[in-house]
Each structure stands twice: as C-alpha cells, then as structure tokens.
C-alpha cells in the first residue's frame, strides 16, 4: 500500500488537560508538499490548538486528550518523540524574541541550534544552515547578532532555524501578528519562496486574510473548534458570509463589495490578479 505523502488530520478532537470542553471538535485537513493551506477564524475558534496538534506538540508537550488521527507521510504523531516530529513538521509562533534560543552570538549559530541538537556531523550542520539561510535570502545575516534584528528579520531567522531541522511541513501560527507592514511583507515573500520550491507543505494560520489571499491555494475557516468552510482560497475568501463567521474579508473583497454597493461593477478577473 502506498502511503500518502501529506500532513493529514482526520476527525481530530483535542481537549487540554484540566479543560472541560474540546478546543478542537472534529477537524479534517490535508496538506501536501508544495501546497499552502490557510486556516482562519475568530479568536477562540481553535486556530492555535490546531497548530499545536499539527506540529505534534499536543498532546506530547502540551498535556491533553487527542482523538482522531494526525499523520505525517503516514506516521502517527502520537507514536513519535518531540525531536523526531520536529524533523517532519516544524512550527513557527508569533513572537520572534521567545523563539530564538537566546544563547547565540551570531545568526549563523542560532540557525545551527537545531541541527546541532540532532548531533549531525559538522559538514551536514553547515550545509543545512547555509541552505536554510539561502532559502529565505538572508545569507548576509549570518554574522549579525540575533538580539539586534527587527521583528520581521527576527521572524525570518526563527523560520530559518526551524527549516534547518529539516521538516517537510511547516505549521505557522500567526507568524506576522507582531510585525509591522514591512515585516509582514518580508515574511510573506519568504513563505511564497518556500512554497514555490514545491518541496514543503505549509499550514498558515492567520487572521490577516490579505496574506491568505496572497499565498494560499486553499482555505479552511474554523469556528467553535470545527471547520465551517473549506475550499479554494479565492472562493472561500470571497464568501459573502465570511464576516458573519467572525472573519474580516480581504481588502480586495471588501473594496469590491463597497464598489458594488455604490453601483460600480468590476470584472472578477481584476481581483484575481490583484490577489495573486
């Protein structure tokens, strides 16, 4: 039997230890290499929990009860230890400052933190660090002090240190929520670059739907721990009911709605191009 090459969540329910309700209550999601799947929804819809489960941190590191199955290229995450899972699905959080190890003098060393933890031969460590820095076009950061980077730059270094561990899937939990517009653009471009290589599957959790519109092929909208909409990004994000689900539609969609209300009709094609 051939194993599906994908990060797959099937009927996933998750309840934190000490909580009485399920934060995730039946979610299905499939992400294949080269694909960017957006996840959005109001706060408390289970977005962050989805990240922890998909990244294999729950229930291993974050205690709780997991029902359903989470598999990466056919392997159940609950059978794996944290460092094994880290090599299959990497996770990036909101705050660059807390994600950097805070033990490195240079960006280069910071990115080497993960590969060194794996005990790889020095040559492999060097190759992985160079590759990760190159993939994000930040090779020139190598000798800078990680503590003296801007928010966007710090987030790129954090992303590079996750990439250097070698995951085929990336789970990003609102990676731009603490960044200014410039930092957001920096990270957005870097993600687009990774997706274009076709090697890595990305789950992008965001409330900034503009970013989702720009990057994602498919979008899942969460509400109350369940998927309430799923489909091609252009379709889901243009859904007139999006606002009622607690999600701010992308600016292009809002602009079009305003124009339509004012009696101006713009061909759909123009928006598809603007979004891409």
């Amino acid at each position: 039997m051939s194993v599906e090459q994908a990060l797959v969540l099937r009927g996933v329910r998750y309840r934190y230890a000490g909580a009485d309700r399920f934060a995730l209550d039946g979610v299905d999601l499939v992400v294949r290499p080269g694909e960017v799947v957006g996840v959005t929804g109001p706060s408390d819809a289970g977005k962050s929990t989805l990240c922890l489960v998909a990244a294999g941190l729950a229930p291993g590191t974050i205690a709780g009860v997991l029902e359903g199955s989470v598999t990466v290229d056919g392997i159940e995450t609950r059978d794996q230890r944290p460092h094994e899972h880290a090599q299959q699905a990497g996770v990036l959080f909101q705050n660059p400052a807390t994600q950097l190890s805070g033990t490195s003098r240079y960006v280069w060393e910071e990115v080497a933190f993960g590969p060194r933890n794996l005990g790889l031969p020095l040559g492999d460590v060097v190759a992985r660090v160079e590759a990760a820095l190159a993939a994000l076009h930040i090779g020139h950061f190598g000798e800078r002090d990680p503590a003296r980077l801007s928010g966007g730059q710090g987030q790129l270094v954090a992303l590079a240190s996750v990439l250097a561990v070698g995951p085929r899937y990336l789970v990003l939990d609102e990676p731009t929520s603490q960044l200014d517009p410039q930092g957001t653009r920096l990270v957005g471009d870097a993600l687009a670059g990774i997706a274009d290589t076709g090697q890595t599957g990305i789950v992008l959790v965001e409330h900034k739907t503009d970013l989702l519109a720009a990057l994602c092929s498919r979008v899942l909208v969460l509400g109350g721990g369940r998927g309430v909409r799923e489909g091609p990004a252009a379709e889901v994000l243009a859904d007139a009911g999006l606002h009622d689900l607690g999600v701010e539609p992308p600016s292009a969609v809002r602009l079009r709605a305003r124009l339509a209300a004012a009696g101006v009709s713009v061909p759909e094609q123009a928006f598809a191009e603007a979004a891409a």
């Binding site: 590191t61 460092h83 880290a86 994600q99 933890n117 794996l118 020095l122 460590v125």
Partner: peptide, 20 residues
Amino acid sequence: ERTMALEARAFSAPARRTPI
C-alpha cells in the same frame, strides 16, 4: 512558547550536540 520553540528545534534529541 520558549518550551515549544525548543522542542521544535529538536532540543530533546538524545544525541550529543555537534560541537562547532
């Protein structure tokens, strides 16, 4: 968040760290 970031960087791997 620090704990999870460490786990995502394979901090609890059993091997000896590579000296650089």
